[in-house]
Amino acid sequence: MIKSLRRLALVFTGPTIIAFAIAFAVPFLVGLYLSFCEFTTVTNATWVGFDNYVRAFSPRERFLSSLGFTALVTAIAVLTVNLFAFTVAYLLTRKLRGTNFFRTVFFMPNLIGGIVLGYTWQTIINAVLVQYQTTLISDAKYGFIGLVLLLNWQMIGYMMIIYIAGLQNVPGELIEAAAIDGADKWQTLRHVTIPMVMPSITICLFLTLSSSFKLFDANLALTNGAPMRQTEMVALNIVNTFFTRVGVEGVGQAKAMVFFLLVSGLAFLQLRATRRQEVEQ
């Protein structure tokens, strides 16, 4: 049985392998090759070695500064999104009237695309700032606050759903046992509920971390890097390098490679760190 299955392995995994190769592996390898080349179109490239990588880190490229800004936005967004999402989820798993209605309401923003959100928030924030005779792109801190606001608004709903699922899976007898042992609400939350929902926290941290780190569409629509590229996140910086400038396509590609290593490295570390916290039920 096992033998015949092994013989058929390619038949079963083949389609997936082919799809994976076309959509991911091949473009990735071509991209890796191109990051060492100078090129205009991807089919016509000349080898230049590590030049692109050296240039990518020069201050003029603003790659490192955009990385710093991205890290800042990500750090704040991961914290606030998860804090709010968990709070909302916690409240909506109490026995309140209309929880289903509120869950839907909180989830809705997630259905709107980043570009639309970006322009919508731009209009909203400008409408507020106009009272103070200023605009969103007059100061980088407005752009920063705007991005964090937008990320929160967009991601809280989705994370909330995951937390709700996690919270509903906390066995009632554990809570009850804690109550009998005299634990107050805070102690129950801290020592029973949170350890039990650790898998949800893992997923949510992972999702928020990677999506805020890779954020592109909302950044493009909201500020497009203004003022003076101070709110340019890494993804936008790479796209701008590639498409708005002449003769630096290879540098853009090199940046993309560095970015890939960073995102995957971060996500891997984060996954490993939180995995250890999980408790078996």
């Binding site: 400008n126 005779q133 200023t134 605009t135 969103l136 792109i137 007059s138 203004a226």
Partner: peptide
């Protein structure tokens, strides 16, 4: 308009 509002 006020110059401060030009970015909008």
């Amino acid at each position: 308009i006020d110059p401060k509002l030009t970015p909008s």
